[in-house]
Nucleic acid binder design. Structure first.
Lengths: 268, 268
DNA sequence: CAAGAATTATTATGTCAGACATATTTCCTC
DNA sequence: GAGGAAATATGTCTGACATAATAATTCTTG
């Protein structure tokens, strides 16, 4: 049995929603009830993850038996097992023979996993989620940027430059802007040559997706970040670590500002 | 098909070993050849992961067919599928009907996953791995420490204090020292209340395990970090963010120093 | 005749069903 | 309360069929 009481539940986590107004929107809603068409193991995994993330199945909860899940989702037990395997790989659940499958302690969940981030974003796009993901970005990206400026190759820089041009070319088109924006930030992480910072790209991707969703109330916002990206790029080209760090910091400031104002708009 | 050529392989990654002397040791070696006893899906997943991490199966490589893997590991296809599901959950591989299962681009691997970190540590404890994991710790932990000092509750601090006492009580016993050491660092991350920083605990755990392994050549090294931990704790209790950041920075300096010297000793 | 389009065949993963093995829990007995 | 037996949920195996992407073939056409 997982030791859940060693650490108390931290009071401020986005997983437990106290106020419904915390939730910004529910787009890409996954059908809670069984859908008519048979679900694939992936979508079953996503649905089970949603139930865990939203706190319907709390930490330590024993899930329904595999056979029951199978009949509930109208698939074979093999498909259920595949779905559960995926979630085991992300640290969400663990199984023991006879004892059943239970939800692991939240501290064991790998929140930096790409899919888990996306599922969380879809299920619980709360202010807490936004605050926390912005906080880690602030910690990691400026430093990554400084490392990039020192260690990156000219090829790396050229790739980031291409991403920047893509953003510029997108103009006011929010959709076209999003992809090169991600490539820009990812390019910096990749240029560090640090596999762990590179893996952090999944978190950045989720954060940018969130920003993109929020920008629907202010379509002009993304474009305003362009000169800040340019500043970052210039410092990188100059191989100025401190300058790159500061420039990225300013970009993070702007991003946070956009998120905060978008969320206050959404609340109204 | 995964687009592998959009980003070139970064030259400096621990996954591709250029020099055998880079590898420090091979403990907890997983049997490459089929073992006499039947392997569980978990151990099969670990073995497949090892083959991928060590570059035997490179990015884009198509894995042997499931039936072939089943006969090679002497288990049923169902077990193989479960093992592969786990690896899919970590972004290592992806399958497509008829086309087969292939190794995804390294940028999609979730290196911040606990198990993946452990497998990497077991399979490729290279200098690069040590350097990179230390680099992210330097970025994340001092900032987390500063946040902890500001935002943490007295309960959080008490828990960290308990961990410290555990380290103290362990004396020169390396093994007894390791667990409270991890709890100390994890306690700081948990006190931030940031679920993403908490998830970073898996990376810290892997780093500490590596340090522990390396300390076999210098059993007195861990104990020397005790006063540095005390300094961190004092700054936290004082709710001094800057002080806490700096104290953690010094602890990181010492840790890195220990790793570097241990690795140079190992090389000889 | 050759190039290309459309069709068929092949094949590896995806899904299903039923059975048995195994490890815990639970309950019963002493 | 301790020890043993029954119950049960996950773990594993087998064999089969479904499905989709690829490879091979045939057919059409310039």
């Amino acid at each position: 049995m997982i030791n859940c009481d060693q650490w108390p539940n931290s009071a401020h986590t986005f997983v437990s929603i106290r106020d419904k107004s915390d939730i910004l929107f529910y787009e890409t809603g996954i059908n809670v009830a069984k859908s008519a068409s048979k679900d694939s193991p992936q979508s079953i995994a996503r649905e089970v993850a949603r139930l865990i993330l939203t706190g319907v199945w709390r930490e330590g909860t024993t899930l329904p038996r595999e056979i029951e899940l199978a009949s509930r989702f109208d698939v074979s037990r093999a498909s259920i097992r595949e779905a559960l395997s995926l979630l085991k790989g992300k640290g969400l659940i663990a199984s023991k023979q006879k004892a059943g499958t239970h939800v692991r302690a939240r501290f064991d969940w790998n929140m930096l996993d790409e899919e888990l981030l996306n599922w969380t974003l879809a299920a619980l796009p709360t202010q807490e989620f936004a605050k926390q993901i912005t906080e880690v970005r602030r910690i990691v990206e400026p430093e990554a940027c400084a490392i990039c400026a020192v260690r990156g190759t000219d090829e790396d820089f050229a790739r980031i430059e291409r991403a920047y041009r893509g953003m510029d070319a997108a103009g006011m088109d929010r959709v076209a802007y999003a992809e090169p924006d991600l490539q820009f930030h990812r390019g910096i992480l990749i240029a560090t040559g640090n596999d762990f910072l590179i893996a952090f790209g999944a978190t950045v991707a989720a954060a940018l997706r969130m920003s993109f969703n929020l920008s629907s109330t202010n379509p002009g916002a993304p474009r305003k970040s362009l000169p800040y990206h340019r500043a970052v790029l210039d410092e990188i080209w100059a191989r100025n670590a401190d300058g790159a760090r500061q420039a990225m910091h300013k970009l993070m400031d702007l991003t946070e500002q956009n998120i905060v104002s978008a969320m206050s708009r959404q609340k109204k």
